[in-house]
């Protein structure tokens, strides 16, 4: 790998390996989750599907078991917000009062 070309490790968030190393040395994250929250690796539109295996090489002290399945959270894959509106819009749209 050339030293001058920055190695992009997370394409969605345009994050380079240099930035990852800097975050590790400065903020001393103690898990991949914390590294993710600091650098935003895995937080892009692909939800880490592309960068997960690369990021697994990051040197962070791991106290939890090394498990790279990210927590799956609804809506599970990117969705257009409009989809959530159309369906039961009428019934749920009825105004009601606070108890």
């Amino acid at each position: 790998m050339s030293k001058t070309e920055p190695l992009v490790v997370c394409r969605c968030e345009n994050l380079t390996w240099d930035e990852v190393e800097r975050a590790i040395s400065e903020l001393k994250p103690t898990s991949l989750r914390q590294l993710k929250l600091i650098t935003r690796w895995g937080m892009g539109i692909c939800q880490g599907r592309v960068c997960r295996s690369l990021m697994a090489m990051a040197e962070v002290p791991d106290h939890a078991e090394r498990d790279f399945r990210l927590t799956v959270r609804p809506p599970y894959k990117p969705i257009r917000m409009g989809i959530l509106k159309d369906a039961e819009a009428e019934e749920a749209g009825e105004p009601c009062q606070d108890a």
Partner: peptide, 18 residues
């Protein structure tokens, strides 16, 4: 999401990823 679209109808075209 529905409450947000009540105030911002344009968000219908936005994407929610997580």
């Amino acid at each position: 999401a529905r409450r947000a679209m009540r105030f911002y109808p344009g968000m219908q075209e936005s994407t929610i990823i997580r």
